[in-house]
């Protein structure tokens, strides 16, 4: 029980283990999901190690190779951009940033959402009412616009973007977690914990949250592509990461400007982004089906 990251360890030994094993078995029978996992793993691996082993640096300018198409002899797999930087490395860097933002923002949303939802659901009553009212109000806000204002006002700061995106995504998580907590808190094992004098924070952390992980896992697979999308959206508008750093949104935006003369600048980053989103969607569908068989 000391290892907080492994779901099977947290659940009651026999039944919980079989639930997750069951899910894993079902997932491995879903060919689309397995293929998506493999492709995604490849993309992530390339994005993580690619920039280190690639022959060119992502910010190096080759003035004699400006805006050339894919050219294997010169070592430019995806061609170069308008100032002569290797597009292959830049695309990998972009994918790396996208994945980084997605993981960070998803973690922020998880942290806030799970704690908030679990507390609201477990404490209940007026506190619950107040907390969920607040979530309702936040839901009504056009959040995209607020993130944009935030980026405009405080400058294009990647840490701020993690926080802003996480702050947008936690709302749904809080709702899901609260709903689950409500059903969990009347179960016998929670009653037993209460009866044996465990404090409420400990019950939430040790008994409620580990049992929430199923729906949370489903929601994570939906949140990650969502965040990647939003980050690319902001970068596309020129509000995301700054030069010479890059992200897929920035590359697609640059590519869209040059598509008449250098279509590869649009097509390659767009393909990588689309591939990643495709994979996440397939995996998300697969995980949902695997954990919730009645929904098939």
């Amino acid at each position: 029980m000391t290892n907080g990251t492994q779901a099977p360890d947290m659940a009651p030994p026999v039944r919980g283990r079989s639930l997750w094993q069951d899910a894993l078995r079902r997932l491995s029978h879903n060919r689309a999901a397995v293929a998506a996992v493999v492709v995604l793993a490849l993309v992530v691996l390339l994005a993580v190690v690619g920039p280190w082993i690639a022959p060119h640096a992502y910010d190096e300018l080759y003035f004699d190779h400006v805006a050339i198409g894919p050219d294997l002899d010169a070592g430019f797999l995806f061609g170069t951009d308008t100032v002569g930087r290797d597009l292959f490395v830049r695309t990998l860097m972009g994918a790396r940033i996208s994945i980084l933002v997605a993981l960070a923002a998803t973690s922020v949303s998880l942290l806030i959402g799970i704690l908030y939802g679990a507390i609201a659901g477990f404490v209940g009553g007026r506190v619950d009412n107040l907390m969920m009212r607040f979530v309702d109000i936040m839901y009504a806000l056009p959040f995209m616009f607020f993130v944009i204002i935030l980026m405009v006002v405080f400058g294009r700061n990647i840490v701020l973007m993690f926080l802003a995106l996480g702050a947008v995504e936690w709302l749904t998580m809080a709702r899901i977690v609260r709903g689950q907590t409500l059903t969990l808190k009347n179960r016998e094992f929670v009653e037993a914990a209460v009866a044996s004098g465990v404090t409420r924070p400990r019950i939430i952390l040790r008994h409620i949250i580990p049992n929430l992980l199923g729906p949370v896992a489903v929601y994570i697979t939906l949140t990650i592509p969502q965040v990647i999308l939003v980050e690319s959206f902001l970068s596309f508008l020129g509000l995301g990461v700054q030069e010479p750093l890059t992200s897929l949104g920035v590359l697609i935006s640059e590519g869209a400007d040059e598509m008449e003369t250098a279509p590869w600048m649009l097509i390659f980053p767009a393909t990588v982004l689309a591939t990643m989103l495709f994979c996440f969607n397939f995996i998300g569908d697969g995980v949902r089906d695997a954990l919730d068989p009645k929904d098939r």
Partner: peptide, 17 residues
């Protein structure tokens, strides 16, 4: 699935292209 996975800022320039 394609429509859902492809964001509109990717579809739009591709359509224009």
């Amino acid at each position: 699935m394609t429509g859902i996975a492809l964001p509109n800022f990717v579809i739009a320039p591709l359509l224009a292209l």
